[in-house]
Write a protein that binds this DNA or RNA. Structure first.
Lengths: 347, 347
DNA sequence: TATCAATCCAAAACCGTTTTTATTGACGAC
DNA sequence: GTCGTCAATAAAAACGGTTTTGGATTGATA
């Protein structure tokens, strides 16, 4: 079923068919009807490859995912993908998905896709403070949108206001009555970790609480690290009654560790996470956290990328959104002072 | 950077460049070197679109995911995708991802992709007993591999031996000493639900335990339904001391409900799930379940599809794999008889 | 020495579109 | 009447590869 067949059936030249299908509006109503009828009858659809070749645009967006390190796929990404796909469905574009197992490999893969002209642009996720993928794309002048900023920010991005969220987190626990607040941070090379820490400190300052370095711990992003940090903090001379964690994973680890010590989460110690992972709802107690809707982020990033591809200045597509508090059950007013908490642990 | 440029630089015709790049092996070593050098210098990579057009093959596999019903993406699928992508990386093919929000829409989307020749074949997930997508693909004679069988099975598929897994599950709890075993089943239209129930019954028969219809409940696939079913079963006159659940989600719901009743999971009541979801490891107690490695399934399905596209008879690509027991902490020997269990609840 | 086969490569055809250029006929203006 | 002008469409030229065809050169064979 090619355009030739349609042209023959309608008794016109194939160029005419093409112009009708692409709405040039320079064909008589009569022949247009005839052609559309032929298209209908033959159930004709243009070949994507031929159209791409001539047009030089492929109507496909690309995304390179970090390859799950043996078994562990990122739950955040699957929702993010879903959001992208839905946005693309509306605009008749497709999504090309690839994986990369290291930073260098990611760069290679992006380069390959650019050179073989398989995509019109990229969505870059999980940005680092200094991101080689973004370096490549900027250098090549290839369209992209990043989910998350980097040190440089002269490109299109969609990001959550991390600082604001952690400011809000501190405000929230302060309002509950906490004055001694711990912070489980992330690796300093990650941009979001820096921003979240800034929010935490601003929150303390705003509440007139002196900043105590002993209450701040930099963790790796896994449960074990969260558990360890929680144990460290709770054994301080003056332990915190609230823990603000840079990711849900850390918070889950912390909760596990604290429960093992016999503490009641949400009463003895408040724990707040960040990410809004579905898992959080199933643990005991359900985790209070901040949610950024991965789905919405994906959909919005896709639309922004489409705009950029169509010529909008990337600098006009920079969006900062707020993360909202998802109140569940791991927070509450402090039932013990730090001193009492310390004593209850000693027993 | 087109093949023309390379040809000019190397001083040959473009056809020769093409033959060198595609290893026809009919060019002299000397010119081949010259051409490869030119390719290197220009960093040339062929245009995917042009190559597709001429070859009639696009080296792209397609997958149509169910669109997350507002926010809830399937954790299984994200690992599955990752497996596919990694397999494709090895064979220099790409993956086109789309979403569909209903069964009919899914059929439409498949049809569109076939007609625009954007993919060489499909991977179909979450098969139903009677699957309209598979109907379409069979009718069109388009290559595909299904993850899961349907009523008809004359096509390529990769499936877990559901019956066997549930046979094993029953054997496992019988070996622990249980004789009163409940079954939390799934919707009957789902093929896997039927198979798993068959396995459960076979297990009972094998152990010489009479089949009691009261112990079998058909649930919807969510926590609430699992919780409800668990409550129903445990309030029978002679309650089960072990619950075998058709998915982890059901098992998680059941555990929540039973814990709320003051029962100790793994001691008063054993609960076994199925899916190997990561969540299972974080709940309390960690869920004993059967795992089918979504990652491996994706990788294998992708390879099978490639084989089929390259001409292998689909009927030679049907694979049944075993799901393995992931022993965690929600199972154990019964510490109470059904009667004692009943009494402890009455208090 | 003429013939034949084998090797290497240039040239041309083709894939199915879109876009540009040419052609045709109708119409109005001078 | 002839000459543009315009609208509508046919015809041809891309797009960037792959594949086919065929020609020139070489070496072996009769």
């Amino acid at each position: 079923m090619t355009i030739e067949d349609v042209a023959r059936l309608a008794g016109v030249a194939k160029g005419t068919v093409s112009r009708v299908l692409n709405n040039y509006g320079d064909t008589s109503a009569e022949t247009r009807d005839r052609i559309l009828q032929a298209v209908e009858r033959l159930e004709y659809q243009p070949s994507a490859a031929a159209r791409k070749l001539k047009r030089g645009r492929v109507d496909t967006l690309g995304i390179v995912l970090p390859a799950g390190q043996g078994e562990h796929a990122d739950p955040f990404l699957s929702e993010f993908l879903d959001g992208i796909a839905q946005a693309l469905d509306l605009s008749d574009r497709d999504l090309l998905v690839t994986t990369a197992h290291s930073d260098e490999h990611a760069v290679t893969v992006h380069d390959r896709l650019i050179r073989s002209r398989k995509v019109d642009g990229f969505i870059v996720t999980r940005t680092q403070g200094d991101d080689p993928r973004i370096g490549l794309l900027l250098q090549r002048g290839f369209p992209f949108v990043a989910h998350g900023r980097t040190k440089e920010t002269d490109f299109a991005w969609y990001d959550v206001d991390n600082e604001r969220a952690f400011l809000d987190a501190v405000r929230h626990v302060v309002a509950l009555g906490h004055r001694r607040i711990g912070f489980l941070g992330g690796p300093v090379r990650m941009n979001f970790a820096i921003q979240r820490k800034a929010g935490y400190r601003r929150g303390l300052a705003e509440a007139g609480i002196a900043h105590d370095p002993a209450l701040e711990i930099a963790c790796e992003l896994n449960e074990m690290s969260g558990a360890e940090a929680a144990r460290t903090l709770v054994h301080l001379d003056e332990p915190p009654t609230a823990l603000v964690c840079v990711t849900d994973t850390l918070a889950i680890g912390a909760i596990e560790a604290l429960r093992a010590l016999g503490l009641a989460i949400g009463r003895d110690v408040t724990v707040i996470g960040y990410d809004g992972l579905p898992v959080g709802a199933y643990i005991d107690p359900p985790l209070t956290t901040f949610s950024q809707s991965a789905h919405a982020a994906g959909a919005r990033a896709a639309q922004m990328l489409i705009d950029v591809i169509e010529g909008v200045d990337p600098l006009e597509r920079q969006e900062l959104v707020r993360a909202d508090l998802v109140k569940r059950a791991s927070d509450g007013p402090p039932e013990k002072t730090p001193k009492e908490l310390k004593e209850s642990l000693a027993r």
